[in-house]
């Protein structure tokens, strides 16, 4: 009898506990976007010197950028998997990709799209309202305090202005591309039917992209070294605009 007295409450408890557990999300997978900074075929490591495709020495020291509204594209439309993240090479070990991981719906996809920067609402945020671990907080160092809004891309370092010069790169040749302002919120679109991929339910999937420094300078816009090494966007809007056009096209699917 005593067993029965114990058994009934135990059964009730089991039923209650099991009903409290959240059912696992059906039809989802763990999706990782991995961005590999490169310069040509070489992996990029901050504070190391490289020679770009045109023979200029370059030593990047900072590469940090926002991506917003990351979408998986399929034959039937798009699904947003991430509203905002800050990818910062200072936050990963040398040689490691810039990543974020989310739950994404399983399915067949043809590609991915995202915006480099922040949408106008995100860009109007007050950074003091966020905790330091938030991508929009003051701790990221991306907020422009003298002007409203955030720096969308911060690419800094040193480069030579004469091709094929012997190293090391001059420490006085500082370059500083800080892009921002709502008009320079730009979209990157990758993949097509020939690069379709499937995210299987319950499986981990990693989508690999390269981000090529060569393409930041030699893309649809050719950024000559003589055009200026510094832009805080409003200080040289033309240069910031060119850099933005190149930057969103500097992403490519990584070779399998």
């Amino acid at each position: 009898m005593i067993y029965l007295r114990l058994l009934i409450p135990a059964l009730i408890l089991v039923v209650m506990v099991s009903s409290c557990e959240k059912d696992p999300e059906l039809g989802t997978s763990t999706f990782t976007l991995a961005v590999h900074p490169v310069i040509g075929t070489e992996g990029l490591i901050l504070n190391q010197e490289y020679i770009d495709q045109e023979g200029y020495r370059i030593k990047p020291v900072t590469l940090r950028f926002y991506i917003a509204h990351v979408m998986l594209t399929s034959a039937t439309g798009e699904v947003e998997i991430k509203d905002l993240d800050l990818l910062d090479m200072e936050n990963v070990a040398a040689g490691e990709p810039l990543t974020f991981t989310v739950e994404a719906p399983a399915g067949d996809y043809t590609g991915i799209s995202f915006w480099v920067g922040l949408d106008s609402t995100q860009n109007a945020s007050d950074p003091a309202t966020f905790n330091n671990d938030h991508p929009l907080s003051l701790a990221t160092g991306t907020f422009w305090t003298w002007n409203t809004g955030y720096r969308f891309v911060m690419f800094e370092g040193y480069f030579d202005t004469i091709q094929n010069t012997p190293g090391p790169v001059s420490s006085t040749r500082f370059f500083n591309y800080h892009t921002g302002t709502n008009p320079l919120y730009a979209k990157a679109e990758l993949g097509n039917a020939s690069t379709a991929f499937t995210i299987a339910e319950g499986a981990d999937y990693t989508y690999n992209l390269d981000l090529d420094v060569n393409k930041m300078f030699y893309g649809p816009q050719n950024i000559a070294r003589s055009q200026g090494a510094v832009t805080h966007t409003t200080s040289n809007y033309e240069l910031a605009d060119k850099f933005t056009q190149n930057f969103v096209r500097a992403f490519t699917l990584s070779a399998p």
Binding site: D126, P127, A128, L138, F143, T145, W146, N147, T148
Partner: peptide, 9 residues
């Protein structure tokens, strides 16, 4: 800068 709060920064 659009607000007094942001101005402090």
């Amino acid at each position: 800068v659009p607000t007094l709060e942001l101005q402090v920064l």
